[in-house]
Design a binder for these strands. Sequence first.
DNA 1: TTTACATATACTCGAATAGAGTATTTAATT
DNA 2: AATTAAATACTCTATTCGAGTATATGTAAA
Lengths: 334, 334
Amino acid sequence: MSNSSDTLILLNAVILAVTAEVPRFLVTTHGDHLPEGSGPALPYGPFEPSHHRTLEIALRGWVEEQTGLPIGYVEQLYTFGDRYRDPRELAGGPRVVSVGYLALIREAPPPGDAEWLDCYDFLPWEDWRGGRPGIIDSFIIPALEEWIQAAQTETENSIRRERVSIAFGAVEAGWDSTLVLERYEILYEAGLVEEADRDHHVRATEKPGGTHDPNSGQGQFAATGMMAALDHRRMMATALGRVRGKLQYRPVVFELLPDKFTLLQLQRVAESLAGIDLHKQNFRRLVVNNRLVVATGKFDRQSAGRPAELFRFRRDVLRERPAPGVGIPTRSAS
Amino acid sequence: MSNSSDTLILLNAVILAVTAEVPRFLVTTHGDHLPEGSGPALPYGPFEPSHHRTLEIALRGWVEEQTGLPIGYVEQLYTFGDRYRDPRELAGGPRVVSVGYLALIREAPPPGDAEWLDCYDFLPWEDWRGGRPGIIDSFIIPALEEWIQAAQTETENSIRRERVSIAFGAVEAGWDSTLVLERYEILYEAGLVEEADRDHHVRATEKPGGTHDPNSGQGQFAATGMMAALDHRRMMATALGRVRGKLQYRPVVFELLPDKFTLLQLQRVAESLAGIDLHKQNFRRLVVNNRLVVATGKFDRQSAGRPAELFRFRRDVLRERPAPGVGIPTRSAS
DNA sequence: TTTACATATACTCGAATAGAGTATTTAATT
DNA sequence: AATTAAATACTCTATTCGAGTATATGTAAA
């Protein structure tokens, strides 16, 4: 019954910020602890029972220590424990269980040992601003069609068809922007992201890390985004899906904005997260009518046209109304 | 950096079923592994890295083994890792990290070594069917008012006021039925549930378990429900909150219903989970218009009045529409 | 057999919200 | 003075939501 000697608990943080209308994850690209060619890694820290009173305190502690960034909003995402999620397990390493956290931070001063990468570099099919991304029809859907056909049994066939249909919106209401994880998992299972290839090789050769040639299948996987270390892209997908969901019923956008902002800035941040264009007038109506913001009387004169008024988040809404999100609709146009 | 020798990973399941219009948790009341007088415990199993490929598989495995119940819907809830959440830690025991899962099962045949207890025995203030529960105004609100006043600083005072205001709906839109965990945590921090008392005693005496006299403060805590082992009531609160949230945008109710059911049965189950009465006609309109169910042509003649038609869940909705919940409104009357 | 009763089912009505669009105003830039 | 990029105001319609009234259809008691 004891599992103590062969298990390791890590805390992983998906740290998200939005700068210049693009949501970015904080990653380390030169982690010495991970094999070369395995892609950028999310920052992590060990959970040390003797030092840390709670998981969240532990996470906040080392994130602030490592990045120097003040973390506002933190939320536990998911706990990942699949076998071989860390390939070193194959070489006798311990089973690594990672508790994933989502952290939202306000701005993006260049962090010490890491860098910010566009979240849509990892999940390119998720950005629908400016229309449905080309890869979906040119590559993903046909490839998934093959994957569906390749099912061994009739049951499996219809399961796959149903999953693809839900996640990639084949029917009616179409694209559900929150199903980020479901989509990534399908692509992984269908072997369409580079991680699938990498993990397959590593497991086949029964040797830990290092065996994946980062150049194999470059062309093949170029369309489905940048690979990340271990299962970190899965964590990113989980995080993005969670943020998108939260957006609809909690005012989390404001965690990512500076103290004062224009309504257009607010809209751009919301759009960048949701991955869709929003109707400007309706967006403003929603935000203003719901009294999510207060005018400051000051104006922003950076941009070309008529200066926009600067607003501030009205924290009191939290107390007054249970579900004040910045309503992200099913689809929309600017 | 290694935490392997002093940490233990457990898997806990909050298994939920609805029988006779009451939602019930599966608990063991005579666990030999826990001290006497600490209340009913949720079933759990160890996570054994060498045997279990994934956390979820591990959980499904031993739940079906221990209870013999076929589990349909399973979802990871939260990972709990606070220091001293298992009092045996005080006596040199390992830090216990528990990954909590929510499982929904279809019926409630009497399980082997455990029993079903009404979830509102643990969280009595959450059941608003038939109106706002008396304890809220007669006991909880006044006690929380005292707790707010007792804050040491002005900042803490307003934080407490805000938290209570949001969770217990002092203003406007009122009660948000999904904030189950937030409410429990406030009650715990305010010392209004028996666990707070128990944990305080245990930690003060620096001895593990057994020291809490189950009769101390019986009267004091009678109003705030039944105590559970360790932090299991927190897990229950997490689970109930999650189900209530899911209910609104995913058709999870059907996991708890038999294959065929009447619309009133469906409504009763939804009501029992949401903890509120729903408007019958509107509920039916919603369910029927959204084509969540299909008529079977058969009728139920068990009850007194006009026989109700038996319906079946139309699984295809999952594929067709992204968010087909059985809409639980903010408030309503039958 | 009739009546009461419990339940199912149909329909209406107004308020609020969501999606989409047109028109107007305001300041900086050329 | 003209141009331009943005902010802001207003309209219109479809849909949803909460609430209510009315009616139908069976069982069980009188």
